[in-house]
């Protein structure tokens, strides 16, 4: 089962989280953005079959934080997670390496 590392709470089972979809950057200047740019931000997704995707997750049964995760779609592993400010949290394997 997929394990995610919440930036606040640490490693938890996927069933504690809610998937928030692929990350899609907001238009740089919202007031000037055209309808097509808004539609792209709101709806269009790469939906790639392989590779690492940056996506949103919500720690529903925990601290209530929305954070970003990089997930490898083929291996079905979360590579790393971080808060929206870009504060990176080491992945499970990296944490273990530091401890030892």
């Amino acid at each position: 089962m997929l394990i995610l590392s919440c930036p606040n709470c640490g490693e938890r089972n996927v069933s504690e989280f809610r998937f928030g979809g692929e990350n899609s950057p907001r238009p740089q200047s919202p007031m000037a953005a055209s309808e097509a740019e808004w539609a792209e931000y709101l709806y269009l997704r790469a939906n790639k079959m392989e590779g690492v995707q940056v996506e949103w997750w919500y720690h529903q049964a925990g601290c209530g934080l929305w954070f970003l995760a990089e997930r490898d779609w083929v291996a079905n592993e979360v590579v790393r997670t971080y808060t929206w400010e870009g504060v990176c949290v080491a992945s499970a394997s990296e944490t273990e390496a530091h401890d030892s």
Binding site: E22, E40, Y43, R45, A46, N47
Partner: peptide, 8 residues
């Protein structure tokens, strides 16, 4: 070169 509004 098209991006579609959907996720699998």
């Amino acid at each position: 070169g098209l991006e579609l509004p959907m996720e699998t």
